[in-house]
Design a protein around this nucleic acid. Sequence first.
DNA 1: AGTTAATAAATGACTGGTTAGTCATTAAAG
DNA 2: CTTTAATGACTAACCAGTCATTTATTAACT
Lengths: 204, 204
Amino acid sequence: MSKSHRRRKDARPGEILDAALAEFALNGFAATRLDDVAKRAGITKGTVYLYFDSKEALFRALLEQESGRNFAEIDGLLDGYTGPADKLLQLLIRQAGVRLIASDLRHLIRLLIAEGPRFPDLLAFHHAEVISRGRRLIERVLRYGIERGEFRDNGLVKFPQIIVAGPMLAMLWQSLFAEFEPLDLEAYLDTLSDTLLHGMMVRK
Amino acid sequence: MSKSHRRRKDARPGEILDAALAEFALNGFAATRLDDVAKRAGITKGTVYLYFDSKEALFRALLEQESGRNFAEIDGLLDGYTGPADKLLQLLIRQAGVRLIASDLRHLIRLLIAEGPRFPDLLAFHHAEVISRGRRLIERVLRYGIERGEFRDNGLVKFPQIIVAGPMLAMLWQSLFAEFEPLDLEAYLDTLSDTLLHGMMVRK
DNA sequence: AGTTAATAAATGACTGGTTAGTCATTAAAG
DNA sequence: CTTTAATGACTAACCAGTCATTTATTAACT
């Protein structure tokens, strides 16, 4: 019972996914060795193939697993809210920024940007399941503000991308340039909220 | 003089870079075969190595070549300008959006996001040469508006990233999700400008 | 102008290393 | 004693980078 061959059918897939996330985040898809994934998971490569059909299937499973986790939590935060809409948007932006940057989501999104075009059906899935959910979340906040008469109804509801863009870019910045020029995330998100809410023009 | 072995020392590097851009954009760094790059350029792999030391050097040369081309042109557009600042910002955003999406820059930026973390000195170069130039461009427009008393001075000058974020996300969207849900770039950029300039809140 | 010699560009076969995926075998569990 | 998780050695393919050889271009010399 000591050194090897311990059978743990139910725990394996999760462990493999965790290891895969770490390795993919480090090296990208093509440059990741399944031997390394296996090693990190404390097993051998053969075992990986007991649970996943191929390297690509592993990548796919990874994205599908991580997707949507955060949405549920943010949704929960919004559920009971009845206060002013500007505070709500501030909350949303803060949550988006913090979650994008803190979690492993960050690496997965970088991976998706990188490898997405080579896996069109993966993009389709992500668009259908994840993006659409994010859009609904943003629309919900915007509609709330418009109905309360706080937000004006410029075309923004049609382009929720404009709201995510800021947090998204912060995430990319942290992934790429943080070591050369760190970003003060707090101040950044505050300025972002302020600009989106009140605009740049002097009030007349 | 017919089939092969034609010597064209001066034209080669450019041709190789063009071919490399196409292949890298298609497959990413690791999955691109130098044989394919050579074939696309109408030569053989050996010839590639006459002009570039390694695959990595080729990638690097590619990024360095394309960088900055667009800045000069945008700078030129701004140079003589004396009109209202909001129109200037609109112009800047439109230019950024259109150039990011139309040109091959788009693929290169995706590549940089994807492979950047594995080539830290490449990121350093890009940060020093390209990003900083973009920042200066944006600062220039913001300062112009603030000096004219048109723009209020919230912290935006410290976070020019907020201005690029919108065009940048449009570029990513087009690269990834355009086939599932195309983005009306004109309307998007208009809405973006409007939101940044006037904000979302109802004027009181 | 024509022949030849020197030079430089380009080739393509080759190698050494790497790695996704397989499968016969081993060993734990019930 | 049967079942099945896990192993690890193996293979088949792939590809970055090399280099001896081939071919074009230019120079040099009649």
